[in-house]
Design a protein around this nucleic acid. Structure first.
Lengths: 165, 165
DNA sequence: AAATATTAATTGACACCTGAAGTAGTTCTC
DNA sequence: GAGAACTACTTCAGGTGTCAATTAATATTT
């Protein structure tokens, strides 16, 4: 213990010029861990709600949400991009939803490699019901945050998102 | 600035209050989606780096990071809490790390139900190496964001985190 | 002290997710 | 127009994650 500290102290003079950078190290890591913690908690809450209220999961909800915004249907590859997951994953989730009759795979006559995935009528109904509640959950989760702060967050996170293209 | 606020306060009829709520719906959902998008991208980058450089994974790194901060060792249940995952999950990750000789399960003679999980010497060495690079990755990912904005984000996300326990 | 409840960790079933390899259909190139 | 390259999707293996049920040890109750 004491040995460790001594060693660290010996190195300190060198690091001194870089104190600001060193602090930034900690700042960036701290920011990252906090982002992760927040996201995980919210995600976990949403996930539990989806399970409890609709016996479904976040990825399924997410896929259906993408389809709802694209009534003409989406290719598997487009779903993959928009959901930011791999193609193999989309195949699995789509299989599940198709088996439950919530989505449909339609072949493209012009290119028989391609599927267009669409919400079935039943899928549309179910998604609508879920979407309403989902919005409510998110609002409740963020209810303690002022509109001003929410806007600031959207702004700052936008900067990060842009930085990462 | 102050004038703006006053205006908003003066115009308080029903329609207006509805508008504010309606906007807030969108605002909250938008904020949530943006948080998720940012986190996913960063997480994905870190994950890829861990895989490419050290042939390991984020959960493993995360578990080792927890242990590094607690040289006396942690119970499975403590790990579970700190990592915000279920106990069964911790069992699996610990099994993997133990098999590779990076962590050790020590029985508590006072209560034979509990294990104290610790980093092995090899685990410590490996974690150190990973931690240095990991910090570097995070810093690079956030390099385009000013210190001021990072601090703001830490602050605002702290508010959210607090709001959610 | 025996019956009961509680607690710590594991197990098993199932879903998610990735990366790499495989299949089938399309396009390019000569 | 036949072979090579490319593209869309699927499959597979392996790690991650949840929940519910189980096992084993400890606490509590009577």
């Amino acid at each position: 213990m004491a040995k460790e500290k001594k060693k660290l102290r010996l190195v300190e003079p060198l690091a001194d010029a870089e104190t600001r950078i060193h602090d930034d190290h900690h700042l960036s890591v701290r920011l990252w861990l906090r982002m992760l913690a927040c996201t995980n908690r919210i995600e976990s809450a949403v996930r539990q709600n989806l399970q409890a209220r609709f016996a479904t999961t976040l990825p399924r909800f997410d896929l259906m949400a993408q389809l709802e915004r694209a009534p003409q249907g989406l290719r598997m590859s487009e779903l993959s991009q928009r959901m930011m997951v791999t193609g193999g994953n989309v195949t699995g989730i789509t299989d599940g939803l198709e088996k439950e009759g919530l989505v449909i795979r339609e072949v493209d006559p012009a290119d028989r490699r391609v599927f267009y995935v669409k919400l079935s009528a039943e899928g549309q109904r179910q998604f609508r019901r879920m979407a309403v509640e989902h919005e409510q959950w998110v609002i409740e989760l963020f209810q303690g945050i002022s509109v001003k702060h929410k806007n600031q967050l959207v702004e700052l996170l936008g900067e990060i998102k842009q930085q990462m293209q």
